[in-house]
Amino acid sequence: MARWCTASISVSRAKTRRSFLTSDTSPGQLLRQEYETRLAARGYRADAAQRAAVDLLGQWLSAFLGRRRSLLRRPAAGVYLWGGVGRGKSFVMNALHAAAPLVEKRRVHFHAFLAELQTLVRAYAGQPDPLVLAARELAGSTRLLCFDEFHVHDIGDAMLLGRLVKVLVDEGVGVVCTSNYPPSKLCPNPLYRERFLPTIKLIDARFEVLELDGGQDYRRESTRDWGQFCWPLADDAVWADTPLAPPPHAERELVIEVNRRPLRLVARENKRAWLDFAELCRGPRSSADYLWLCEHFAELIVGTVPSLDGEGIDVQQRFLNFIDIAYDSGVRLRLGGVDRPEVLCRAGSHTDFSRTHSRLQQLQALDMANAASFCSFQEAES
């Protein structure tokens, strides 16, 4: 069965290559057309940095699909786009994923993809090198992998991602990554950075690396409505007489099972759940738990978010992971905080707070101390 599947994939890839070679429209042209269409749909105007990224991706995709092996020069294994938050990295990569004339392509997000990889690894438990077997299974069904928000903050992620990237490159999978960091700044923790250095060297040697930074944060212009941020709220008042309070008929104080462990909810009503910040972030919660919540609920209400520079790095990382997962999943989020987002997520407290702050800024702000703001919110909700 494995041989038949591999052969079928090889035939499919050969057909894709032949169709590309005989097509009048190159992958690079398809990408530019897709990019321009998406710009027009949003009313955006491209900056020079984004156009440079589109040109590079188009050239790489054309070479990747039509490449011929050479003893003198190996083709680039992929493209690594990095830059500040809101510069359009994901926008450009999503255009590439849509335009690539391939069936075997995937666009994945960091946390969901790692959860999938860990599940695959467990399926090969007891066999020699389960991670390599899992990575080869992924490579067998994927020709192009678009990996959004590539970052490394703990030793588990470092070991998984490092070996995965090597296997994918060895198997000929094209990998396109977006990141807030240049390759040299990945895995900054000195305790295990040495173990990730071979992956950094692999990216530098085998990938086209481009900084995408036109100097403008487009998320500030976003019209996406993915929830509210209410402030200032105290811990003892967040669930009483505030916009975040559960309705009278909601179930109160219940415990559900999430990935075989209990999780206490303040309240639940249909597809909405209310949670305390402490329950969500101060305990031993994983990204898999946050993925589960976003899969089972359409709206999550969380309070009260404290000033995070007063929390431990583990609590900060859980909150960042939760915001990333909620944002990417499309769940509606309502947060209550002791202060404004820029105060809760001070620059320098955590290396990824810039991304989190940018996403919190896209929540509708409700200043509880501002009567006019509160009244307009109540009118909108009624």
Rank of each mutant, 00 (worst) to 15 (best):
F147A: 09
T119C: 00
L138W: 14
L117V: 04
L114K: 02
V176Y: 03
E149S: 08
D154V: 02
T178G: 12
E116A: 12
G140V: 07
A112W: 03
Q118Y: 00
A135W: 07
G156K: 03
V176M: 04
A123D: 14
R136F: 01
N180L: 09
G172W: 02
D157L: 04
C146D: 06
A158H: 14
R136S: 03
G174P: 11
M159L: 15
G126N: 10
R122K: 15
L114V: 11
R163N: 09
Q118N: 07
T178C: 09
H153Y: 04
A115G: 05
C177N: 04
L133D: 05
P130L: 10
L168K: 03
N180S: 14
D148A: 10
L131G: 10
H151C: 02
D129Y: 03
G162M: 08
D129C: 05
D154H: 11
E137T: 08
E149L: 09
L161S: 05
E137R: 15
A134L: 10
A158F: 09
H151T: 02
V175G: 08
C177G: 01
A158K: 09
G172Y: 06
I155G: 03
D157E: 12
T178P: 11
K166I: 00
F113S: 03
R163T: 07
V175K: 13
F150E: 02
L120F: 02
C177F: 10
A139V: 06
E149R: 10
A135F: 10
E171G: 03
K166L: 03
H111G: 03
H109I: 02
V169T: 13
